[in-house]
């Protein structure tokens, strides 16, 4: 009668150019299925999936979005309130990789993020199953880009042969957990110290200003 468990809910949004395999990634993760000829997503798709991490079960509410430009106005309303954003590209498609920047901006704009409120981004390079000669983005390029953009988590996956798919989502949640605990710490830390230091800082400021004036005199 009572709902089974009240797992922590995490809202995950998957973004990226059309055709990089967002829906495939989600379907592989949720139902362990892969369809070579899947359709374009209409606007958004939504699935639930429970994920165990260190004995705690998290319910991921995954919003898979349509990558085509014409769907832009349809997907952006769903960004708000996300806990995790997966930026996806295909390793055999350089453009999709270059567009990550745009996706990140779009997400940041429409998710209406507060300054301190950091959303864990996870960069996912899908289609790692393609033959070596078809690869257009190297792992190093991905890591470099992530470093430049302050994103700490990235992974290459293949929805087709199921490699690293579970890991990717797990990684995202762990990243979220890290940010979450850090945020908690920050909160308590700010309550205790920031106010004081601010006060001190102000004092010191006026002190210094006064001092310099004096010395200039």
């Amino acid at each position: 009668m009572r709902s089974t468990t009240k797992n922590p809910l995490l809202k995950v949004v998957i973004l990226g150019d059309g055709g990089v395999g967002k829906s495939c990634l989600m379907n592989r993760f949720v139902s362990n299925q892969f369809d070579e000829h899947s359709f374009h997503t209409i606007g958004v798709e939504f699935l639930n999936k429970d994920l165990d991490i260190d004995g705690q079960t998290y319910t991921l509410q995954i919003w898979d979005t349509a990558g085509q430009e014409r769907f832009k106005t349809l997907r952006t309303p769903f960004y708000r309130g996300s806990d995790i954003c997966m930026l996806t590209y295909a390793i055999d498609d350089k453009t999709s990789f270059k567009n990550l920047e745009l996706w990140r901006k779009e997400f940041t704009y429409y998710a209406d993020l507060k300054e301190n409120n950091q959303i864990p981004f996870l960069v996912v390079g899908n289609k790692s199953d393609v033959p070596r000669e078809e690869r257009e983005v190297s792992q190093l390029e991905m890591e470099t880009w992530c470093n430049e953009n302050g994103i700490t988590s990235c992974i290459e996956t293949s929805a087709k042969n199921a490699s690293n798919v579970q890991e990717a989502f797990k990684m995202a949640v762990q990243h979220w957990l890290r940010l979450e605990s850090r945020a908690d710490k920050n909160e308590t830390a700010t309550n205790d110290t920031v106010d004081l230091s601010k006060k001190y800082g102000d004092n010191r400021m006026s002190c210094c200003v006064g001092g310099s004036e004096e010395s200039s005199n």
């Binding site: 359709f39 939504f46 699935l47 639930n48």
Partner: peptide, 23 residues
Amino acid sequence: KSPVEAERCRDTLNVVISNAIDT
């Protein structure tokens, strides 16, 4: 579109509704 896509959309809506009810 197609029955498959309609079905997927239905699934999405149903999940959203049942999630809401669960919550």
